[in-house]
Amino acid sequence: MKVVVVGLSITSSWGNGHATTYRALLRELARRGHDIVFLERDVPWYAANRDLPEPPYCRTILYQNLDELFLRHAPRIREADCVIVGSYVPEGIAVGEWVTANAGGVTAFYDIDTPVTLSRLRRGKCAYLSRELIPRYHLYLSFTGGPTLGALERDYGAPRARALYCSVDPELHYPIPRPHRWDLGYLGTYSDDRQPTLERLLVRPALLWGEGRFVVAGSQYPEQIPWPANTGRIEHLAPESHREFYTAQRFTLNVTRRDMIAAGYSPSVRLFEAAACGVPLVSDRWPGLEEFFTPGVEILVAENEKDVLCYLRELPESERLGVARRARERALAFHSAARRAQELEEYLNEC
């Protein structure tokens, strides 16, 4: 197929999780024989932080504004077998209206932020998708599964809503035998709604266990946050550095955003990445978690700092390694980028 993707970014992973998702998925689609063009709005904050300016598996074209997009790329849209528009695309409503009016093949909206999108739609404050636009896409690809898929079809008029969860790239994420620098680490961009959970499940354990070693990696954290003395900070990690970061931890922490908890069935890509690296996961609790990893067997669930400290200080080493091994097996079997590419093909064939 000829596939055109209009997405937030594939060239820069700075401050977003979209780039790594697109990179792994499109690489696997290309391996399956598809011809792919990625159209990305050229914005200053990504221009200053391009860690993959020219992906080798697709043609990436930067555009400056809507006029340029509409005038230069209309033929591509008409001739493509499939056009996918991603969430958070600048002026995404106008982009979506143009795509659905002019595309000659299947049109799909790829929502990498489904719970956030639906929350904004309910408040009438979504800049990249409207209620009126949803029925015009042939396919709604959602990072969130479970009951949300039925709601998208029933309440929003999506002709087909299908889960296309985040995934892991096994070529980038795999175990590395090495000494551990940290007992517990966390990787994620700052958000107001995640911070209280991060305080509860990492900062408080660090304060209570002075001998422990902790680390938080991610951009946009306010400078005034008082991190404990035994908690390191890394401002930004490029995707190719994630493996080294995870494998330097005895355990890694997953924290879920409020909207994702409310919707359920919204796994973070960090879950699959860390699992593929063979690092045991400690996570907050959210509906649908057991669909991806079995609590107590493949993942450790923590409600408070006492749970976290119990895992860090009391879990036998054999069980720590067992949790990590079982999670890795599950992630590679069901949540690889190759699996997602196959699922996407199946959805497009439905259309």
Rank of each mutant, 00 (worst) to 15 (best):
L8N: 11
H18F: 13
T21N: 09
L26I: 11
G33A: 10
H34F: 08
E40F: 07
R41T: 01
N49P: 00
T60K: 09
I61S: 01
D67Y: 02
D67W: 02
F70L: 01
A74D: 12
R78C: 07
V85N: 02
G86C: 02
A94K: 11
G96D: 08
T100N: 11
A103G: 08
G104P: 15
A108D: 07
F109R: 10
Y110T: 00
D111F: 01
D113S: 08
T114H: 10
T117L: 09
R123Q: 14
C126K: 06
I134M: 05
L141V: 06
T144N: 04
G146P: 01
L149F: 03
A151E: 15
P159F: 09
R160G: 07
C166G: 13
S167E: 07
V168S: 04
L172W: 11
L172E: 14
I176G: 06
R178C: 12
P179G: 11
R181A: 09
R181D: 13
G185N: 10
T189I: 12
R194W: 10
Q195Y: 15
P196T: 10
L201A: 03
L207K: 15
W209G: 07
G212T: 03
S219V: 05
I225W: 10
N230V: 07
T231A: 11
H236L: 09
A238T: 15
Y246D: 07
Y246R: 06
Y246V: 02
T247H: 06
A262I: 11
G264M: 01
Y265M: 05
A275H: 01
A276Q: 02
C277G: 14
D284Q: 01
R285W: 12
P287R: 05
L289S: 04
I299V: 15
V301D: 02
N304V: 03
Y311A: 00
R313W: 00
E314H: 06
E319I: 07
E319T: 11
A327W: 02
R330E: 08
A331N: 06
A333H: 07
A338D: 08
L344Q: 03
Y347G: 01
Y347T: 03
N349S: 14
